[in-house]
Write a protein that binds this DNA or RNA. Structure first.
Lengths: 213, 213
DNA sequence: TTGCTTATTGACTGAATGGTCAAAATGGGT
DNA sequence: ACCCATTTTGACCATTCAGTCAATAAGCAA
């Protein structure tokens, strides 16, 4: 069995690509993700990515126009995936179940794609210069909509009266922490077991108790 | 009124320093904190720090041996401060009040020292190469001790039975998020108000409900 | 095989980077 | 004023960086 991949998002009318191109672009993006997610954009070097992918530096630049283009491609592929779990929250569903299901989807994202999570964290730490548009438009609209749903649920007494924005932020914080701070968690709990071990049960308990009307 | 400073931690028998040295070292560290906390160690440049501090690059290196030495000094000054809130947790106190007070101290740290918080986050994202020792020894011991206290409280029925490690991690995640992801929060809620607005009340509500026996 | 497209690389460039050094400027005590 | 230690800087260096380019090698259809 294989993990779901952060999808290619290739447009139907996109550039025709040979098998070699598809394969090598993927290899490069994979090595680049490793480097960008640990050192950030400025701290990453093409030489590191070249070494990680087993290709020569000029060869990287045969497949991508620039260091920036590689980074942009990674972010582009990520952003859609990042929004999806929140999009799936159903206003017509059971409030507690919906929120906990959203938390669980986010946690699984952090567990299955920790490098993508750290890439995102790095971008935000730098002030989000490359995804400011995405955050101010797509993400903000989605959060505002969801906050209204949550507020309505609270108003109707179907969940405890909590600040909807902080409720969303808390889910982001708690789930993303297991990817972004995995190094710290590993050093404290022992690097042998999964940093998210026990997290799902704990978070379920937390949100069950927080949201009970 | 002035914020409490991340202290100098100068040893009593440390090197004698003139007024100019004390002042310029502080100016350099302040500018360096800004740069390191947003771009990470590798992404930061001495030229940026020089520009930010208003000093020439050779002048930086008159006060510090190297880029690494500046970074190390910042981390050293930070680590003690980072441990203190957890150290203050009193095993003899009221369980709920103690845990919530710890959360509040951490939140204030994130609010008052967001750059230090991001410096720490950057270090962990990179795999914590420079503070691995600190985490594996000082931090781990303190966390283990605290986890035992929490477990005893849970055992005695004085708080709800929760995983003590995940409880600690949750406090780290929720409080640190308001500093590390401040850019994102600002873009969603409007950059005009403090990202931690309303956070204290929300987190108090969260932990009150989570910990109630 | 031939011929053409795609893929790969060694050698290079100009700019940026961390760091050095000797000389010059400054500061403070007398 | 003088002196000497502290501070500051311009010029410089070796290395690393992103990116270029012409030449070569590999893939593939006929």
């Amino acid at each position: 069995m294989s993990l779901p991949q952060i999808s290619d998002a290739e447009k139907p009318s996109g550039p025709r690509r040979t098998r070699i191109q598809q394969r090598n672009r993927q290899i490069i993006l994979d090595a680049a993700l490793e480097v960008f997610s640990t050192h950030g954009f400025r701290g990453a070097t093409l030489d590191q990515i070249a070494a990680g992918s087993g290709l020569s530096k000029p060869n990287l630049l045969y497949y991508f126009d620039s260091k920036d283009a590689i980074h942009r491609e990674l972010l582009t592929r990520l952003l859609g995936t990042w929004l999806e779990p929140l999009r799936k929250l159903d206003p017509a569903g059971d409030p507690q179940a919906e929120i906990i299901a959203y938390m669980r989807r986010k946690l699984h994202l952090a567990r299955d794609f920790p490098r993508e999570s750290r890439l995102f964290a790095n971008e935000i730490l730098q002030g989000a210069p490359r995804i400011e548009d995405f955050i101010r438009n797509d993400l903000r609209d989605l959060v505002d909509d969801t906050a209204q749903v949550l507020a309505a649920w609270a108003q109707a007494g179907r969940i405890a009266p909590v600040d909807p924005y902080h409720l969303i932020f808390s889910i982001w914080a708690l789930t993303q922490h297991y990817a972004d701070f995995a190094a710290q968690i590993g050093m404290i709990r022992g690097a042998d077991h999964d940093p998210t071990d026990g997290a799902e049960a704990f978070l379920e308990q937390l949100y069950t108790r927080l949201l009970a009307p």
